[in-house]
Computed example of a mutant assay.
Amino acid sequence: MKFSGKAHKFGNDVNTDYIISGKYKFKTLDMNELAKHVMEDLDPDFYSKVAPGDFIVAGSNFGCGSSREQAPLAIKHAHISAVLAKSFARIFYRNAINTGLPVLECDTDLIEAGDILDVDLAGGYIINRTKDIRLAVKPLPQVMIKILNDGGLAPHFRKYGGFNFD
Rank of each mutant, 00 (worst) to 15 (best):
K159V: 00
I97Q: 07
F46N: 06
T99D: 13
N61V: 05
F55S: 02
G124F: 00
D120M: 08
A74E: 10
G162D: 06
I19Q: 10
K25G: 00
N95S: 12
H79V: 07
L84G: 04
G22A: 04
L84W: 01
S67H: 11
N98F: 10
D13R: 02
K2V: 10
R134P: 12
P141H: 08
P102K: 04
D132E: 14
A74W: 02
F165M: 12
P141C: 06
L42H: 11
P72V: 04
S4T: 14
G123K: 03
N32P: 00
H156V: 04
V119I: 14
G59C: 13
R90K: 15
Y24F: 15
A74Y: 08
I111N: 06
Y24P: 07
R94N: 13
A122W: 02
R90I: 10
G11K: 12
T28C: 02
D150K: 00
F88T: 06
H37V: 07
L140M: 14
K159Y: 08
F92V: 08
I97N: 01
K86C: 05
G63L: 11
A58V: 05
T16H: 04
D118F: 15
V119C: 11
P102F: 06
H79E: 15
Y93S: 02
A96G: 00
A85N: 10
T108E: 01
H77W: 13
G152Y: 03
L42G: 11
L135C: 04
N98D: 15
A89N: 09
N32F: 12
P44S: 14
T108W: 06
F3I: 07
T99Y: 09
L73R: 08
F165G: 03
E33Y: 09
V119F: 13
D17I: 05
L153N: 03
A71V: 03
L140V: 10
I91N: 08
D54R: 07
K6F: 04
L110C: 08
F26R: 14
D109T: 14
K138W: 08
A58H: 11
T130Q: 02
N95W: 10
I75Q: 09
S81M: 11
D17E: 09
G53E: 15
F3M: 10
K86Q: 12
H8I: 07
R129V: 06
L104S: 05
H77G: 02
N12W: 10
N149M: 05
